[in-house]
Design a binder for these strands. Structure first.
Lengths: 185, 185
DNA sequence: ACCCGATGTAGACAGCGTCTACAGAAGTTT
DNA sequence: AAACTTCTGTAGACGCTGTCTACATCGGGT
């Protein structure tokens, strides 16, 4: 296995184990057993290495779409929504990295392709379900974007800690149920 | 005006003008005309200073709720939703700071109070509107959280750049319209 | 008049990303 | 086979960051 791939693997493990702050070039290099300057032989800088990590994150997220349970399009869509939230809650650091513009090279073609693929497959799932909103004549891509944003905000706010507030303590699933009801009910 | 307040003001201007990366203790100190160690006389560290800045951000966001146009509760709710999105798009750096756990002290009581106030007033607005979902018997606080998350995700994804993708270029307003239709339609 | 806490300054330290100089290994060309 | 070039890794340096400490200064209370 080449050093480049080991750096990506090590960075992924470090990310999952220690959080996004621990993913430093020097820390990755040390964890991978190379000198602090070695990563720059394989990546132009930190952003490029983290982009490779984030790209794998999008790929993992997309892989969950391959085996969605459910017989009807509607069931598969709700399964996809659950899988998005599950991914974020199970891999909070990776999820954060994937949407941190300052840590990642937004112009990386592999990264944006992986991100687009995630959205595109989601849009396909949405288009297959005759939602109430779709019947109103709205652009289906727009509906998909809106629902995706709702999911994303749910994951983000939950990880942020704002939805576990004081007097009322909902579970992520219950909030998701309300969201899905709004769009699909 | 005390040095402490000037530091907060300078940091806010720096944040709005140069982005979240530019908000460094040393940069703020220089822009405020004091030595690099002076901020530590007024704040325990960077997180505490940025928490004060973010707290003002939540206060500004809340202030927009004071003068919402619209005669009916429903109109005021949609106005509040628009104002949330407008705030995020008009103050992207502040919006990012407000939800960056790593930059801010989550245990700061003033900060969490300001954040809670924003959500609470929103929940009040939601409770005043007889949405289709509310009629289904769901917890109104849960509905408010779900709608807030949808708004938040819309703002976040738009600033991230993911919603302005390739073949279809929606405006934030059109996406918001779909979201509002899902919850209120 | 004395003291002491509050405020600000300057210097130091470790850690960070990145650049450069250098060394060896590997492969290619002549 | 020899020479040269490219790839890969190391070590050190630089400027930046947040934070800590030592020192000066100033203002009010005893």
């Amino acid at each position: 296995m080449g050093t480049r791939q080991r750096l990506i693997d090590t960075a992924s493990e470090l990310l999952a184990g220690e959080g996004v702050d621990a993913v430093t070039l020097r820390g990755i290099a040390k964890a991978a057993g190379v000198s602090h300057g070695a990563p720059l032989r394989h990546f132009s800088g930190r952003a490029e290495l983290l982009s490779a990590v984030a790209t794998r994150g999008y790929a993992d997220l997309l892989a969950r779409r391959e085996t969605l349970p459910g017989n009807s399009p509607r069931e598969r869509l709700t399964a996809a929504c659950h899988s998005y939230l599950d991914f974020a809650l199970a891999n909070p650091a990776m999820f954060e990295l994937m949407f941190r513009r300052d840590l990642v090279d937004a112009d990386d073609p592999a990264l944006s392709a992986a991100a687009s693929a995630v959205f595109d497959t989601f849009a396909v799932l949405v288009a297959a379900v005759p939602t109430r909103i779709a019947r109103s004549g709205a652009d289906l891509r727009l509906v998909a974007a809106s629902l995706w944003a709702a999911l994303h905000g749910l994951a983000q706010l939950w990880l942020w800690g704002g939805l576990a507030g004081a007097s009322f303590a909902p579970s992520p699933e219950s909030a998701l149920a309300v969201t899905l009801d709004a769009y699909l009910g």
